[in-house]
Design a protein around this nucleic acid. Structure first.
Length: 113
DNA sequence: CATCTGACACTAT
DNA sequence: TATAGTGCCAGAT
């Protein structure tokens, strides 16, 4: 089945368990799209009912601003996620996605190699 | 097709 | 630790 990029990213985000976190880039890789961190942002922004607070910037940084940033931190702490300064202790809470081969965009039949 | 945009990543300074 | 530049990707204009 040819899942859309958004579907794969959504699935990846939903796999992050309570007390664990992942980075935008990590989610992208876990979904099979290394380098598509910005697409992860898009999905998080346009979707609801996701464990959005478990997705952070590289190094465990909260990339939201204002109240949202505060809410994210509170939600994480309530799940038992510990911080080291402004960053989440990734060493202990980063969720590792199962290794998956990158999803290559199919080139047109005609233009094939 | 050219640009712009975004809750980014990485490197250099 | 903070900022700036560049690379990145797909969707919108």
């Amino acid at each position: 089945m040819a899942m859309s990029m958004q579907a794969r990213i959504l699935a990846a985000i939903r796999k992050i368990p309570r007390g664990k976190v992942a980075t935008y880039g990590g989610v992208a890789r876990g979904a099979g799209y290394p380098g598509a961190a910005r697409q992860v942002v898009g999905v998080l922004r346009r979707s609801f009912g996701l464990p959005w607070h478990r997705v952070l910037g590289a190094g465990g940084q909260i990339k939201l601003r204002g109240d949202s940033a505060v809410e994210q931190r509170l939600r994480l702490e309530s799940e038992g996620v510990s911080f080291r300064g402004r960053r989440v202790d990734m060493k202990r809470h980063e969720f590792r996605f199962a290794l998956s081969k990158p999803v290559r965009k199919r080139r047109s039949m005609k233009a094939r190699t």
